[in-house]
């Protein structure tokens, strides 16, 4: 079937199989930041934005994104740079495989709620699994970023 998706600001017309998943479609178009961690909507690694809202691209057909605006971390580098340096300072990036999904959802959190409490951060990001860091370093990084921003 024919679809048209705006991917990171660029309009792409494509022919896809009806069962093509959005994660496979964005990776096919060079957005390798989007990772598959579980296939069952449990890990959050494949988070992308559709019309600005975070969605799990492993659980969405590319066809459903037809006519929509899809963004991946490739398209949000500047917005991400602001705070990921604070995660890096904690060493909380670790293996990095969960980072893009976690970063995408954190961007979404900070757009919705620019000054979240620690509990609000934990709750918002609960769907983003990380097996390396133990989460505490990610939280410290976000907290330090917020403190820096609010100075």
């Amino acid at each position: 079937m024919e679809i048209q998706i705006t991917l990171n600001g660029k309009i792409i017309k494509d022919h896809v199989e009806p069962d093509c998943l959005l994660i496979d479609w964005v990776r096919k178009h060079g957005c390798y930041s989007v990772k598959r961690g579980c296939e069952t909507s449990n890990c959050g690694l494949c988070t992308v934005f559709m019309d600005g809202k975070p969605v799990l691209s492993c659980s969405m057909l590319a066809a459903r994104a037809n006519g929509h605006n899809v963004q991946t971390l490739e398209g949000l580098q500047e917005e991400a740079k602001d705070f990921v340096a604070f995660i890096a300072d904690q060493g909380a990036d670790q293996c990095g495989f969960c980072n893009p999904g976690f970063v995408m959802n954190t961007i979404s959190l900070l757009r919705e709620n620019p000054n979240p409490t620690d509990d609000e951060i934990r709750a918002y990001l609960a769907g983003n699994l990380c097996r390396c860091s133990g989460y505490e370093g990610q939280l410290r990084g976000i907290r330090n970023y917020l403190n820096h921003k609010n100075k």
């Binding site: 580098q77 990921v84 300072d89």
Partner: peptide, 21 residues
């Protein structure tokens, strides 16, 4: 010293670095 990992920013910004990428 608590230096950042040398690959931190690449990882955090989602660059293609893994087998399938």
């Amino acid at each position: 010293k608590a230096y950042r990992k040398k690959d931190s920013m690449q990882l955090l910004l989602g660059k293609p670095l893994y087998v399938d990428d």
